[in-house]
Amino acid sequence: MLVGFAAEVLKLRKRPAVWMIVAVWIMLAVVFGYLFPYLAYRSATGPKAALGKQALVQALPADLVGTAVQGFPLFAGALAMLLGVLATGGEYGWNTMKALLTQGPGRVSVVAGKALALVSLMLLVVLTSFAVDALCSVVTASITDSAMDWPGVSDLVRGIAGGWLIVTMWCLGGAFLGIAFRGTALAAGIGLVWALAIENLLRVFSSIVSGLDTVQKYLPGTNAGALAAALGSPTQSAPGGTPGVTTAVGGTQAGITLALYIVLFAVAASVLVKRRDIA
């Protein structure tokens, strides 16, 4: 597994698309987590001043964890899924899967090496995202003369672990789709439609259609949003809240469900690669 891991890291590290997606991820986190709240604070006057102050609070160091993970269930999750799709689907597009599988380490080892590399990449991106967010919160606090209170170390670790769980689930989901559809286009399309549209639509209908409420509590997006909410992100129903963040289930159940999805995607991807012919 570690043999494949080194090779996969080399591929991810040298792939321009990976760097571009990570750059977009960080940029969106900064824009929606810090720049827009700051602009809202600066421009809000009169009756909207209270909303502006509330927005500013989210951009200060004390709210680092909630703000850093607020985008993970939706936009960062979609980008993580795209990374997963590219990592596996690309192997079919370039026909390189057959080269990997004839080197000798075994089919499951190839998938395991790939999964381990993606899991590590997600941890790296989450850490980077937290570091950049921390820097932005310091700048925001400095220029607004606000208090520079930091979350406790345990909250920070919990936030990083929770955020990593959310994006890893999406990333391995994308990796599974790339293998299932043996390419990038269809896998990315279906994955993104699911993450960005279908789960939101199901949420809308869950209050009307009998049984749908129960089903949606076990869906990946709902649990990702619930974990973000448990870590302090503002829910989508709150004023100025974040799309995709809900309190449909508790944080513990969400964490366990996401972990199970990670295992499910990895096992399903391994089974597919092991059983199918390479055309």
Partner: peptide
């Protein structure tokens, strides 16, 4: 079949690491 964004040498390094 190789990765278009990698150099010839890096493509071989990937395979060499696998085996």
């Amino acid at each position: 079949a190789f990765y278009p964004y990698l150099s010839g040498r890096d493509n071989l390094r990937v395979l060499a690491q696998y085996c």
